[in-house]
């Protein structure tokens, strides 16, 4: 991989919550088609980092760039519109909507058209709607939820909801998919299935940025890993480098380990 493959860059990103520095001067490069893992102990600022990139929080300092455009502190919807879509650690699907409807919400940007075109069901509006529906169905099938299309999300098992969130994110046609602990709360076999889904996404050419707690999973999945502790990057590299890094061991196992 070369520098020219870099499609996303965060430079010196810092988030300061009234004195608490949750993310401290973080540099992250993301390359086309890779799976980049972000790991670190609880409270080390992983999700905050995602939130700053996605416009949930405002960055205190630093700069975020995606495909040559600066997107620092853009509101969430514009970040999504620029091709960066995220999922949430605590699965924020629409519980009262069907799986299909959830996936179609992800297609919002592509269904969107003029108000009057919508009002009079213009050919353009109908074509967009049909396309979004078709893609949503395909994405549900991709994550293995084809049979759940008409099921209300509230009635779906937790593992299925996690997948539904990924299907919804895929419907935005993301350039970069940011997954926040997609396997959190799943049992080991479900988690393994989910990781093989991430692997399939990778094989389909998606660029993936994933937060994950489970070291073993991350090691097997990611091409590169960044480790942060207390908001500071303590290591970056290929899985085997990370595995042998003394600072990482210390962060995870405590001093003297």
């Amino acid at each position: 991989m070369t520098e020219s493959d870099v499609i996303f860059q965060a430079q010196g990103l810092t988030k300061n919550f009234a004195g608490l520095i949750a993310v401290n001067d973080l540099h992250v490069d993301l390359r086309q088609g890779e799976i980049l893992g972000l790991i670190g102990p609880n409270g080390s600022g992983k999700t905050t980092f995602f939130n700053v990139i996605n416009g949930v929080y405002e960055a205190t300092a630093g700069r975020v760039e995606h495909r040559g455009t600066e997107i620092t502190n853009w509101p969430s919807y514009r970040v999504a519109g620029h091709g960066i879509t995220r999922t949430f650690q605590n699965s924020r699907v629409l519980l009262n909507a069907s799986a299909l409807e959830n996936a179609m919400v992800g297609g919002h940007l592509h269904a969107k058209t003029g108000f009057f075109k919508t009002l009079f069901s213009s050919a353009d509006a109908r074509a967009r709607e049909a396309k979004v529906r078709e893609e949503a169905i395909a994405n549900l099938a991709f994550v293995g939820l084809a049979d759940y299309a008409d099921e209300t999300a509230r009635n779906m098992p937790y593992g299925a909801i996690k997948r539904l969130e990924i299907a919804r994110a895929l419907s935005t046609r993301p350039d970069i998919l940011m997954l926040d602990e997609p396997a959190a709360g799943l049992n080991p076999s479900e988690a393994e299935n989910l990781m093989s889904l991430v692997q399939q996404l990778h094989e389909a050419g998606k660029t993936i940025f994933i937060i994950e707690h489970n070291m073993r999973v991350v090691m097997g999945l990611c091409q590169r890993i960044i480790v942060i502790e207390a908001g500071i990057k303590i290591a970056e590299g290929e899985p085997k480098e990370i595995r042998n890094d003394p600072r990482v061991k210390e962060a995870y196992l405590g001093k003297g380990a």
Partner: peptide, 9 residues
């Protein structure tokens, strides 16, 4: 929050 993350203004 989820709506906005899906690109909804």
């Amino acid at each position: 929050t989820a709506a906005e993350a899906m690109g909804i203004n």
